[in-house]
Amino acid sequence: MNIGVLALQGDVREHLSALAECDALARPVRRPEELDAVDALVIPGGESTTMSNLAITFGLLEPVRKRIAGGMPVYGSCAGMIMLATTVLDGRPDQESFAGIDMTVRRNAFGRQVDSFEADVAVDGVAGGDFHAVFIRAPWVEEVGPEVTVLGRVTSGPAAGRIVAVRQGNLLATAFHPELTGDLRVHRYFVELVRRAADDAR
């Protein structure tokens, strides 16, 4: 079982090492043939406009969409959440995404960098108490379709109640960055999801 980390731009290394700590084989993915060699994909934090631009230029947009349609598990954090959304608000008009999760995501919804914050989030399905979450120019989810399960919301502060973690089938997304905190529970949750998906396919 190989998990790829989309390595066009962003905090790729942090996701690779978080996955390695969860005993998953992880490798960077920048080319279509590298995508073919993985069973699942993580889309890291970074700049979604840049990622979208490079995914188009280097021919990854359609292949990733096809794999998602074929049931490949994908986890996206922050920019990765934007890349997984079917509808993106406050993005560039030409911004393309992999469009896997039926949701509307607003970019930089909490504000600019001076508004970036740390707060606790309760994530359903992740045992062990609240998740201490790091939000950096983060998006939030404004609307979800019927197939989407809301896993987590901001619990306090001015943005309390905003949706920041969702799942639809094998697709998982968080507006925050578990890869920055050393708390591996979200990555373990995803690795477990990937294992189950692999077992089901057998």
């Binding site: 920019a79 790091v134 120019r137």
Partner: peptide
């Protein structure tokens, strides 16, 4: 969050 912002710019 300050250092994390720079992590997001990597690459």
């Amino acid at each position: 969050v300050k250092r994390g912002m720079a992590e997001m710019l990597k690459g």
